[in-house]
Simulated assay, not measured.
Amino acid sequence: MQYRDFGKTGWKVSEIGFGGARIGGLLAQDGGRKGSLTTLAAALDAGINFYDTADMYSQGESEVLIGKAFRKSRGKVFIASKGGYCTPAGKKLIQFVKPLAKPIVHALGLRRMRAPSSTAGPIPQDFSPGYLRKAAEASLRRLQTDYIDLYQMHSPSPETLRSAQFQDTLGVLAQLKTEGKIRHYGIALDAVDDARPCLGLEGISSLQIPFGILDMEALDGVFEEVSKRQLGIIARGCFAGGALKGSLTEAELRASEPKWERVLNLRRLVEKLGRSPTEAALQFSLRERRIGVNIIGMRTLDQLATNLQHYSSPPLSDEEFQRLLMHRSVVEA
């Protein structure tokens, strides 16, 4: 594993980080808690030292698992969590019944299903100083730690970022840093364009930005502007939310991925290069040296092993990189 500087923090973070959104959950398969803990331990053994989670992932269970996994090796890892989403009362109840319900769920063979977007509905957010302080302190308890290395505001809207009240939000994060409860704070963004309103904000140490072989917009000046301000860059979305998985059929892509034509064109291109889509995608992201850490969502030992195999594959040659860049231009034209 190779390590990179993370902005002005002085940290050396692994080039790939562990995305914790997929661990935990009532309908999680593949060994449940025990399997997740085994995977987390194996990731650390492989040299991954950056772990990204949030209070809303699996109603807080992702934080619980990460906290338990590294309770005895806390100084070896950087834990990045997020706050700002408000967990509905019904989901809070799930936190308490989950330990009792899981054995029943597994015995019945129930599996996780994605709720239709029309029924899922938006999750409310609260970036007020009082709410964020409570959220951060609740995350500390779930993580079983005295400090969070990086606390991120979770997907604030452009309107929130530009509001006068947001300065109060930054103020409470600065207070939490002074109190030693967080070491640094940053912002996890949903869109590349949201990075620019953040560049003049005082006190932040990092930005988490969508980037990948299907989402190259950050190359159009954003990475340069962010790195000039010595902010750590966390890249998210290397595998386009699973759209690059080779197991997906064309019909499945058409039904679930707006960029399905680009995925199919990309598959044909990387096949000529002798690579899989996910291998090419990870090596494409790794080539961008301004990125501090590339977050990859994983849950099982098999997924970890596959990601490490892709990481160990030969870097893209200049010719391969240019062909992938040209693929973007041809499709957008």
Rank of each mutant, 00 (worst) to 15 (best):
K8C: 04
T9S: 03
W11F: 05
S14P: 10
F18S: 08
I23G: 01
L26A: 07
S36H: 02
L37C: 15
L44Y: 07
L44D: 03
Y51I: 00
Y57S: 02
E61K: 04
R71C: 13
K72D: 14
K82E: 03
Y85Q: 12
G90C: 06
G90E: 02
L93D: 04
Q95Y: 13
A101Y: 03
G109M: 07
P122T: 06
Q125C: 01
Q125L: 02
L132F: 09
S139P: 11
D146H: 15
L150F: 00
M153I: 09
E159L: 07
T160R: 08
L161N: 08
Q167E: 10
T169Y: 03
L170V: 04
E179L: 12
I182D: 05
R183P: 04
R196H: 15
S205C: 02
I209N: 14
F211G: 12
K228H: 10
L231A: 03
I234V: 10
A240M: 07
A243C: 05
K245Y: 12
L253C: 01
R254T: 01
R254S: 03
P258D: 05
V263G: 04
R268K: 14
P277Y: 06
S285I: 14
G292R: 15
L301V: 11
A305K: 15
S317G: 09
R323A: 12
R323H: 07
M326D: 12
S329F: 06
V331P: 08
